[in-house]
Amino acid sequence: MQAIRLIFQLFFLEIILYHAVLFSLGDSYKNCESYCPFGAVETLALFAKSHKFPCAVNEFNYSILIGVLLITVLFKRAFCSWVCPLGAVNELITRARAYFSKYAPLNETAMKFMYGIKYALLGIIVYATYINYDLVFRPYCPYFTAFGLHGHTTVVLSYFILANALLVTFFIKMGFCRTLCPFGAFLNFFNVKTVCKIYRDEKACDCCRLCDSVCLSEIKVSQSIKIESRDCTMCLSCVSACGKKGSLKIGI
């Protein structure tokens, strides 16, 4: 299953990079922002007000957003671990960092504060976009900086923000996705009572805690009966790693 997920991540990463290169060569109109569902989130209030696509956002961004929301309602934040290219980069950094040394556990209060940052960012971005009638966050967007191949609004500060956003991942497992990503914050509003989730069969489980150690979001899988954490991205690492086959299942 993890091999399939890797194929998916590489596929979506390749699509974004392919179009970014074509765009920079002048062979395509589509660049990374053409596929960005967060562009639709940013301009949702404006679209509701004016019934027009503001700035460079178009029906493609909105239809992808609808698709992502559908996936979220069904399978939690599966978009983050299966599709998002920035999520793939974060996972790569997390795995590389964990290979060399273990992540130190963080203070619970500090983590609660860190979790709040993404919601604050989401509010600020949506409000700033609404009052400015423009994608004002674009120059500071780590996704646009990373995959825009020095897009037209990218400045030195953009690279500084991208570097710092990724640096968080060196201290917190999947740090950017869990604490800073405003799109993750938006998806969490639809990630309350999802249709499918991971269930743990207590009778079959021998509490080896392998699932806890492989979880990228540091969820205590071995202490839960069903995984309802909003951090779960359905990467299925726990299901794949489980030594007792059948003790972790996806169900309704």
């Binding site: 299953m1 399939i4 499918c196 269930y199 743990r200 069969d201 207590e202 009966i225 069903k226 299925l236 299901v239 299942k249 996806i250 169900g251 309704i252």
Partner: peptide
């Protein structure tokens, strides 16, 4: 706790 319906991860 067992789910009502088990889904193939695929």
């Amino acid at each position: 706790m067992k789910p009502k319906i088990i889904i193939n991860p695929l």
